[in-house]
């Protein structure tokens, strides 16, 4: 079980890193093209890429930090 928990912590850490890299890569590319695409889908018409990026960051941060803290609690 301990090995599984360590693997679980590593998975969440790497997944958070991938999330940060994806946001960075996307925003760098889009800022070069000065694209401000909207998600033209009611009722999400106000959503732009920056909002989606922020949502991604918030969701992944919440999930990763909860999982890691609970995983460490299980390990102890």
């Amino acid at each position: 079980m301990e090995y599984l928990l360590i693997l679980f912590l590593l998975f969440h850490l790497s997944s958070y890193l991938i999330c940060l890299l994806a946001i960075r890569s996307t925003f760098k590319y889009l800022s070069k093209h000065q694209v401000r695409p909207k998600l033209r889908f009611l009722p999400f018409g106000f959503l732009r890429v920056r909002h989606i990026g922020l949502l991604y960051l918030i969701c992944m941060s919440l999930l990763t930090f909860t999982s890691i803290s609970v995983g460490i609690y299980f390990l102890m």
């Binding site: 679980f8 996307t26 590319y29 889009l30 695409p37 989606i52 992944m60 999982s67």
Partner: peptide, 21 residues
């Protein structure tokens, strides 16, 4: 649950980003 949720988030947001790229 957390692993499935993490994979779902990655799939969802990366598809959205790819769409906008």
């Amino acid at each position: 649950n957390t692993v499935i949720l993490a994979l779902l988030y990655h799939y969802m947001f990366m598809r959205l980003f790819n769409h906008f790229l």
